[in-house]
Design a protein around this nucleic acid. Structure first.
Lengths: 317, 317
DNA sequence: TCTTAGGTTAAGTATTGCTAATGCTTCCGG
DNA sequence: CCGGAAGCATTAGCAATACTTAACCTAAGA
């Protein structure tokens, strides 16, 4: 069906030069090699592509048509290969990142901007979503890497972790919390499993995965039927729900540290230490990062390291 | 610079299948051949195109980019080759014709229409112009063939005739003529060279080539400084100029046969027979016509043969 | 635990690309 | 008019590469 592609290349140069000798010079071979390749191509597709004049070849209509197909291809190919090669010398081209929604919204644009001040040839594509979306996209090569919230995902993707390289970047303490009013009305100092599971909760998912993970961590068990009064995939909304006595929710402690200090929000503590949630960088394990990717990852890590001193992160979803 | 094109084909199939085995099946080779070709390609351009997972290959961003370049090319190539092959079975595709202006205008559209009733897959491009335009285009392969008026061109392209195949299709008698009034006032029965060259003429070209050819034919000489009172590249205009006593002009006799019979237009005769002009079919001699071209040429010749019985041709320019 | 399927690598054979030599032809310059 | 140059084509044979075979490794599924 499809002819020998290298013979198409020979045809292209003959067409451009209208001459076997010219094409031979371009290709750094003898005219004989060019002549034979063209003959083989014409034989292969069984269509004459040139009329032979003395010292010159005149394209047939079929030759014209074939050239019209090849011209844009070779132009684009040359540009594409050149760009790939450039990207090995200077960070350039595109980086495709997956990120939690609110982290992506509030943190990455600023990071992209400062990175691009150093490396203006790099552009970004970002996919905002939960780990259930980010992981498969990284695996399929649609994203170069992702940031995921591991605490949220523990039971969902455990079987596939072997294919990824997961590197924690950010640790944060995760707590169950409610408002002071709710605590005095509903909890009353009773932090037992039985008391807690009978109350109302605000959940990030229908599966209440985060809540389940909190109970598993603190009590080594969980209840299948938590009373989930609100499901919303936003930490801000969960905090608002807590403050308005809607129920309890799982939250990163530094986000509400001021409210905790003021006594407005009460963390629910057990004899176990709090969960340390890890925001991790996820990549395909066997993938060799390009220069551009490596440069960006180092930039990201440095930025997080510096920013981590002041714990300035906004909400992480 | 440009990589081995056949390895690009291998890459394309791997990408489509996301699998070495799948690509091997498509290409009818072993997986080993595919694996090695891909490795050589990556080595050649020094850019990884896939991340190797177990039983699967995940494209890198560079791989994605390369595929975007190849996809339209291979799609177009398959369609193009298919069309070329079809044209060998059924007349189809494009025919590019050169023609004298008024002949082209009045004759060919009708011919194209009836040809396309038989062969609806054929389309036409026509270039209207004089032989000076048509010949080089045929030579350069920009036209598949041309119709040219040989009498008009004799001295211009003689040296190049060897490269063409020239086949007379239409003979027509060419005369010098003027109106009856102009004849009685200016010619008065004196058909000598000296008398004629002193008069006014209507010419098709600045070079007055046609007039020169007429004199050469009838007198074996011509005058360098004919009094050319109008230059126009239209037979109709020449006839009108003749009728309005502007001067003499060279014209095909059958076009004005009724006016000659009525005595309104007088042919200038010498002891030599009149010029027989040939409208000829011109092709590159070494070109092998495609099926489509052959079919059309036969159709054209048949049409001319049948039409020639009634001498129904309109003006020829 | 065993089997299957898929990817990879090395070695060797089969095939093709390429070169060198030769021939033909046209064009140009002396 | 003749000789040389330039360009295309063909043949034969060598060099290089494509491809196959065999073997290996590994993850996934039964």
């Amino acid at each position: 069906m499809l002819p020998d592609f290298n013979r198409l290349k020979v045809f292209y140069y003959i067409f451009v030069q209208k001459s076997v000798a010219g094409a031979a010079r371009e290709l750094n071979v003898t005219p004989s090699a060019v002549s034979q390749a063209l003959n083989k191509l014409e034989c292969e597709i069984n269509v004459p592509l040139f009329t032979r004049l003395h010292k010159k070849l005149v394209p047939t209509f079929a030759g014209d048509q074939l050239f019209e197909i090849l011209k844009p291809f070779i132009r684009d190919l040359e540009a594409g290969i050149k760009q790939m090669r450039q990207a090995k010398q200077v960070p350039s081209g595109m980086i495709r990142i997956g990120s939690p929604i609110e982290f992506g919204k509030s943190y990455f644009p600023g990071l992209f901007a400062s990175f691009r001040k150093k490396y203006p040839k790099v552009v970004f594509t970002m996919k905002l979503g939960g780990p259930a979306e980010i992981f498969p996209m990284v695996k399929a090569g649609e994203l170069d890497f992702g940031l995921v919230d591991i605490f949220l995902t523990r039971d969902q993707v455990f079987e596939d972790f072997g294919v990824y390289s997961i590197e924690p970047l950010i640790d944060e303490e995760v707590i169950m919390a409610c408002s002071k009013k709710y605590y005095e009305k509903e909890i009353k100092g009773d932090h037992s499993f039985e008391n807690l599971v009978s109350k109302e909760f605000i959940s990030y998912q229908k599966s209440s995965l985060t809540l389940k993970n909190w109970f598993k961590h603190h009590f080594n068990k969980f209840s299948a039927g938590l009373n989930r009064v609100l499901t919303v995939n936003s930490h801000q909304a969960v905090i608002t729900g807590i403050k308005t006595q809607l129920g309890m929710g799982v939250i990163a402690s530094h986000i509400v540290s001021r409210d905790i200090k003021r006594g407005k929000i009460i963390p629910i503590k057990t004899d176990k230490k709090n969960v340390i949630n890890k925001i991790s960088l996820v990549q395909l394990q066997d993938k060799v990062p390009s220069l551009t990717e490596k440069t960006f990852i180092n930039f990201l890590k440095t930025d997080i390291l510096l920013s981590g001193k002041s714990r300035k992160f906004v909400n992480i979803s």
